[in-house]
Design a protein around this nucleic acid. Structure first.
Lengths: 145, 145
RNA sequence: AGACACCAUGUUUG
DNA sequence: CAAACATGGTGTCT
């Protein structure tokens, strides 16, 4: 399996409001930038979308290291929250609905396709790829207003 | 009898953990701020303490309107929970012990001294005195860590 | 099952 | 400075 690095970030002006996401895929020397946005969305939806779109862009199953600054995404997977929500019919521990089940379902599909390792990076802390993704995301959020 | 307004709030970092309470007494133009804290306590103990200390600070029996955001306190008195617990020897309806009987006893003493009306206010909803009490309480909880 | 409060964490903004 | 998006938990009661 090919070893790939995926850097992601999301932005959302107003939150909720117009938002964007950015992703950088790196395979050896090769690098690919992806980005997109939506007219009315949230920061967390954009963070999830960045990861989903990054993974979907891979034509074959890979070993992927995903770098994200979103605890919502990182903990949602690494601490197993998402599996609990799904098991309970997209309810949280307090019985209230877990949000964004559409995106989490898509994400689970992609996580099943690849061998994924997740690394949380602190936002706005000088991480070069994270900042590039941030700029991609912000540009898209401006496009979608 | 003098007409007095009492605003109260409690805070507890960690819950249980270091906590604080804040109270504002208003009599006409006069206003007095009270606050205090404890090293290891709970949010509900601080909410009750804020009311108790506010009422204790009155040197004579008064007509007091108490403003609190705690349903534990407001319903405990207004729905008569506390009288039931006391009658049953500090047991709840399910037979298990009612908690914080020390504070509830002190509170009943103070309620007997004054003519008290209770008003529940939603927390963090722009109520100015409630927010001032919150800041007093938080400051104390930081002092007691 | 419901309610209120208290807290912990990160991100996104204004 | 303060708010929204999202999650985990405890303190307490009915």
């Amino acid at each position: 399996m090919k070893k790939v690095e995926l850097y992601t970030d999301g932005a959302c002006s107003g939150n909720p409001g117009p938002g964007g996401w950015g992703a950088i895929l790196r395979y050896g020397e090769h690098e690919k930038e992806l980005s997109g946005g939506a007219h009315d969305t949230t920061n967390n939806r954009m963070e999830l979308t960045a990861v989903i779109e990054g993974l979907k862009a891979l034509k074959e199953p890979c070993m992927v290291t995903v770098y994200s600054d979103s605890k919502y995404f990182c903990d949602g997977v690494q601490k197993g929250w998402v599996y609990g929500w799904k098991k309970r019919g997209w309810k949280k521990s307090d019985g209230k609905p877990a949000l964004n089940p559409d995106l989490w379902e898509e994400l689970l599909t992609q996580l099943g396709r690849h061998q994924v390792e997740i690394v949380w990076v602190k936002g706005h802390a000088g991480h070069p790829e994270n900042e590039r993704c941030d700029r991609l995301a912000v540009a898209q959020s401006e496009k979608h207003r």
